[in-house]
Amino acid sequence: MGREAILISIRENKPTLLPLPDIDLNAFSEETNLAERFKDNVKLVGGRIKEIALADLDREIKEMFPNAKQIVCELENSSLGNISIFENTDPHDLALIDLAIIKGDLGVAENGSIWISENQFTLRALPFITNDLAIVLSKEAICLHMLNAYELIAQRERNFGLFISGPSKTADIEQCLVIGAQGAMSLTVYVV
């Protein structure tokens, strides 16, 4: 149907080839404390952040989420999970999950976002459908800005992944910010 027509029309109407600009990364370099900047921005986007020792992780999470009953944990070094999920689990079954705990791959200081990928959670729906989300991130894995981030994730297996920045939110009613729209109601980042 439209394919050939569209391509022909583009060829007839496009301007002469313009070069793709080179990117000078030096223009974006800054002397800054990455960990501090990341922390400030996680809070700015409505998240909670705590720097802890890995050994204290379970205790910290229990303290933060005392009422969480159905927990999916995708970490090896935590024993909090009580619901097991598999690749063939129906994602609709996750509707009542109180808390999901997953590993983050990379933090971005400039905007407080964290790259998480399908390799860290069995089902794509998990980080969105869970009521609360906790992400555990190594303090070594924080970069300055998005251009750095894309260099660092360039070699990944490309299936599904995302930059997540704080809990789901909306300001669609009279510009009043409300946390907890269609995705997770809260995001807590544990930096270890």
Partner: peptide, 28 residues
């Protein structure tokens, strides 16, 4: 890698947020 430019511009220009809450990358 050009997303590293556009995602830095998009949400800041739109609402003043440093990035949208979810920037989901669908590949497969």
């Amino acid at each position: 890698k050009h997303l590293g430019i556009f995602l830095r511009l998009l949400a800041r220009s739109a609402t003043g947020q440093p990035i949208t809450t979810y920037s989901s990358h669908f590949n497969k």
